[in-house]
């Protein structure tokens, strides 16, 4: 045991990028469904247990494994996105003050990025810029916008989020938000209608489905009330095509999320997780 041939495992990312299409499931033809989130905002709605957090976790997993990505997680329930805390740059629980802080930081970053883009005579961030895509994932948007905090704070939260959704696109700050029923009393219509991509999980009424997908889709036959309550993860997705597509969101079990989250944290911050081995012999043990 004097010479160790194998060095310690070097954290190697899987080479994903946030500018790559993100796999989120399959459609009715069995074809994989990808969405490119770098320049888009996604709103997911549907009744509890429909599979919203499955979609958020899929996106979080891709973002965590991407090299050019930073994660900002706002989760009023703590547990839906909690496993990604170590890969995330900010993880906000049921705390609207911290949520407002992080949104203000993001707004500042966005302004700086636009100033930078203007200085370079450009209009949007591209993959070649080397800037990270800051994915903002908000689970239970209603918790921050209508439940916790004072009226003033809630309004500020909505205003900041609307600014991010409205302007963050070209600066590489996509927002993915989930809520059960994004009606006007939960989030203002002016914010809801800014989300380009929509995912409607099972809804109880076709009116709710219309609120998520957009007005008129239920009348055309695209109603999330069709989805069986037992069929978790089935949803209608409006993305690149412009017409709702029935999809089934890929499911990650808690153990799989934990595995991916550990790996992502390891490739992101290798130093902070394992204490660096002191001698080459220890490396072999660690490997």
């Amino acid at each position: 045991m004097s010479i160790v041939t194998e060095p310690a495992p070097v954290p190697v990312g899987p080479g994903l990028s946030m500018f790559d299409p993100i796999f989120i499931g399959i459609d009715e033809f069995g074809q994989p469904v990808y969405i490119t989130l770098a320049y888009r905002n996604l709103l997911a709605g549907g009744e509890p247990g429909g599979g919203k957090s499955g979609l958020l976790n899929c996106i979080a997993a891709h973002a965590a494994l991407s090299v050019d990505s930073r994660l900002v997680l706002l989760d009023g329930k703590l547990v839906e996105l909690g496993q990604w805390e170590d890969s995330a740059d900010a993880f906000i629980g049921p705390d609207i003050t911290a949520a407002l802080d992080v949104l203000r930081r993001l707004q500042l970053v966005m302004n700086n990025r636009y100033a930078w883009l203007r200085a370079h005579n450009r209009r949007k961030v591209t993959a070649a810029d080397g800037l990270s895509v800051i994915t903002v994932l908000v689970d239970e948007i209603a918790f921050y916008s209508a439940t916790v905090g004072s009226k003033q704070e809630q309004e500020e939260f909505v205003a900041l989020l609307r600014d991010l959704v409205a302007r963050g696109r070209a600066a590489g700050i996509p927002v993915v938000a989930a809520t059960q029923r994004p009606s006007f009393d939960i989030i203002p219509t002016s914010l809801r209608d800014l989300f380009g991509y929509r995912a409607a999980f099972r809804c109880t009424t076709s009116n709710s489905s219309n609120i998520v997908l957009g007005h008129g889709w239920a009348e055309q036959g695209y109603s999330a009330t069709d989805i069986a309550p037992t069929n978790q993860g089935a949803a209608y997705l409006i993305a690149e095509g412009g017409v709702p597509r029935r999809i089934k969101v890929a499911y990650l079990s808690d153990a799989q999320i934990a595995g991916i989250a550990d790996y992502a944290a390891w490739i992101r911050r290798p130093g902070t997780i394992t204490t660096p081995p002191s001698s080459p012999a220890d490396w072999g043990m660690a490997a």
């Binding site: 899987p14 399959i26 997993a61 494994l65 969101v249 890929a250 499911y251 991916i260």
Partner: peptide, 10 residues
């Protein structure tokens, strides 16, 4: 159930 290919890259 649909699995995610990300499980295989880690």
């Amino acid at each position: 159930n649909v699995g995610s290919p990300l499980v295989d890259v880690i």
